[in-house]
Structure formats: C-alpha cells, structure tokens
Nucleic acid binder design. Sequence first.
DNA 1: ATAATCTGGTTGTCAGACAGATTTCACAAC
DNA 2: GTTGTGAAATCTGTCTGACAACCAGATTAT
Lengths: 243, 243
Amino acid sequence: MPQDNIRPVGRTTLTQAIVNEITDLMMKGVWRPGSALPSEKELAASFGVGRSTIREALQSLVTIGVLETRAGGGAWVREPNSQLLSGAFRWGLLLSPHNLQDLTEVRTSVESECARLAAERRDEADIRRIEESLECMRRHRADDPSFMEWDNRFHQHIAQATKNEIFINLAGTIQSIVRLWYPRAYRNPETKERAIEEHEAILAAIRSGDPSSSIMAMRFHVIEAANRLNRVLREHTETGKEP
Amino acid sequence: MPQDNIRPVGRTTLTQAIVNEITDLMMKGVWRPGSALPSEKELAASFGVGRSTIREALQSLVTIGVLETRAGGGAWVREPNSQLLSGAFRWGLLLSPHNLQDLTEVRTSVESECARLAAERRDEADIRRIEESLECMRRHRADDPSFMEWDNRFHQHIAQATKNEIFINLAGTIQSIVRLWYPRAYRNPETKERAIEEHEAILAAIRSGDPSSSIMAMRFHVIEAANRLNRVLREHTETGKEP
DNA sequence: ATAATCTGGTTGTCAGACAGATTTCACAAC
DNA sequence: GTTGTGAAATCTGTCTGACAACCAGATTAT
C-alpha cells in the first residue's frame, strides 16, 4: 500500500502553530466572540513558549481582524463583522484569471443555494428589501459607486432571506471580494443594464417562491457577470494590477 | 443632534502601522511578487522601530499568506494565489455563530457541489486516494478517533479532486467544525456501518464520473449523518447547542 | 456620594542573546 | 571551465528581561 497520504510534513514555525491552536480553540467555542483571552503571559506559560511567540501569533489575528487588543486591557475576540475581515485582504487581491475562476465557481454555488433557500423562506420584509435595492440600482444607474453599493445590498438581502447565519456570512465575504473587482466591469455601460435585467429575473423567481427557477436565475446572473468582467479585463490587457 | 461623527482618531499600534506601510509599498510595486524583502534588521532600521515590531508585522503577513519566510533565507512576496481568498472564508466562518442546523445546510450545499466537480475532474490519483481513505475507514471501524480521521480525509480528498483551492479550503474548514460534534454520534455503533455504506455510494458515483448521482449520494450522506447525530443528541437530551 | 489617588496586572516596544538554517564565496578537484 | 566542498557571514526563530503607557478596580480623601 503506497504511503501517499503520510503527513503534510507539519514543519512550520512555532508562531504559526500557535495561530492554529488559538483558532482551533475559538472554533471549539472555548473563546467566543466578545470574550477575553488569557493574558499573554498566561498563554505563553500554557503553550510552553516565549511571550514573543505568543505576541506574533496574536498580532497576526489582530491584523486579520479576528482579535482586538487594548493596551493594558487584554485581548478580545471580535464580533463577526465581515466588512473588516475582508478589509485585511484588500491588498492581496491582485487576482490571476485562475483565481477569478475559482472564486466564480464558489460564488455560483453559494449564491444560487442562497437564492433557493430565499425562495422557500422569504417573508414580506425580505421581498420589500430586495425590491428596494433593485429600485435604487435603477435610480443610480449613472453613478457607478452607488450602483455597486445597491447591487451588493441586493445580494446581501437575498442571503438574509435564508435566515441562515453562515450563508449570510459566506455571501457577505463573497460580496466584499467581488466588490473589489467590479468597478472595472462598469467601464462597459451595457454591463449595468444587463445586470438590472438579470436582477429582475432573480427577484421575480424568489417572489414567486419557485426554488429551481431561483437557482437558475441566480446561476445565470453570476456566470454572466463573470463573463462580462473577464471580457473587460481581457480587452484592457491590464494584467490584473492594482484594484 | 448627536455628535455621531467625532472620532476618527486613528491611534493605532506601531505594529499595525508597519503592516500598513509594508502593504502600501507592495501595492505601489516596490516589492513585487517573487522579490525578497530587506532583512528584518534593515527594515527595523529603516522604519526606526525595534526588530520585534517588524517581526510582528511580518508574521501577520505570513499568516495572511502575502509573505513567505525561510529561516535564514529572508522574506519573500508570494505569488497571488487562492489561499488569500480561502483565508477570507475561513476567518469569516470562524467568527460566525454555528448551530448544527445552519451548519448542515451549508455543508450539504458545499460538499455536494464538491462531489459534482470531483466527478467531472477527478484523475487516477484522486480516485486512489479516496479509495484508500475508505479502505482505512473499514479497517479502523473499531477505533473511533481513527475512523473519524479517515472519514475526514475521505471528504478532504473529494474536495481536492475539484482542483479548486477555495472549495478545498472551505470544505476543510467546514469539516473541522463538523468534527467537533461527531465523536458523540459514534455512541451508536450502527452509525459507522451506515457511514461506510454511504461513502461507498459516493465513491462509486464519483468514479463513474456521473455528476448528478454524485450530488445525490453526497447530499443523502450529509443529511443522513446529521439526522443520526441529531437522534443521538436528542436521546441524551443534550440540547443541540454549541459543542 | 463623588472625586482623586493608588495599585497590581496587562499590553506595547525595545534590546540583547543564541541556536539553527541558508546563502555566499573562496578554494580545491576534476 | 565546471563542479564540488567547506567555512564564514547573514538571516530568521525563539527566549528573556526590561520599562513605559495604560486600564480597571480598590482605597482614600473631599
């Protein structure tokens, strides 16, 4: 029997190991959002490492936005707020087309599932919020930043209609990444008109409560949006530089 | 009218300031992917701070995945890859509250999509790895921790067969959360036998390259596994809260 | 009761030290 | 000229100790 799946050769630095330990403990619910971590000295003693190592690990989590520290006041697990999380990743997103394709696949899957659940669970308030977003998109079709903002909210409100916290969070993460890219797509004015049409179809499907047509409408929209973006990127032969 | 907007007061720590400086320089193209950064000592001198501060900043960027360090060899800017994107999802999931039902919904969606893509893209090596995991599950059906470990790898190898790094990471994160609940499900010995049968069906579907039957097999398995777990939890009147 | 002050613990930052890894480079061997 | 070798210089990984700034709660003074 071939030893194909041995160990991923856990060779790593102590600091990164501590980061993993801490995040594991957070996932296990030992430290949940809003609660305080032990002091650096205690952590160092518990893990059997020096304080510098602990500090490097904690600072990593602060930079990512998972923790918050106050000089003299300890470290705290932050409340979930996808906004700030993704802010930390802004600089890394000089995507290659390959990354964009991976992201599109995930987005297609997650958002179409959101659309399905939304069709099954939406209430009056959900529909109203989604409608409003769409209406605002139409009204601001001339103003790119506003348009994108309402486009974003449209998708976010659909996620909220699922009443599933994790989907809401996933969709929020996706939106905040997608948002970094789409200003470029708007160079082509036709983009926005098509987007509005596709959003109308999605809204109609969710309002009628039909899961499978909601999936299809959302799927179509996400894939088409990615195609439009790809076309713009290719035309400008900008090798995907600054956001 | 309340003074809502008085406090920008950007006071921050030196470490975080250095993180911003470095990322700014990277975005300006001073340090491009593949190039090496100055040594920690030089950076400390240039920025006029201590080496610890520089190290905390660099380690943050290593954790995020923007940099790579080699002991004795310096720090390098990494090529942009999907790991950055995966991180965003991972940290988001870490903070969002996870109850079993929400989690099961998300898991069903993500893993069945993985199964679909795996059926379309799997190569010989993928199939072999998945088969091996299943074989090991059979061999360790008496040892709960080992069994769960191989169960985990089975799912992980399916994710790998998608060749989509974001899905691989997302599935892994979900696995590690799910893993917190499942030791309890094994109190019922029948659980493991059923799991093996369901895994066999998934493997067969993926091996035959049939996307839709792969989706169904995975969907069935995830939902059934959740049902079994719920049954155990209810018997023990442990309310389905956090682990 | 309220305000001022003290106090112990905590984070932010620095400096120095040393082990282990890596690169460099001169030098020897073919 | 190319390749292999080994030592030196450099770098990161990690720990320890130190001190200022800071925060929260207890104590004291008004």
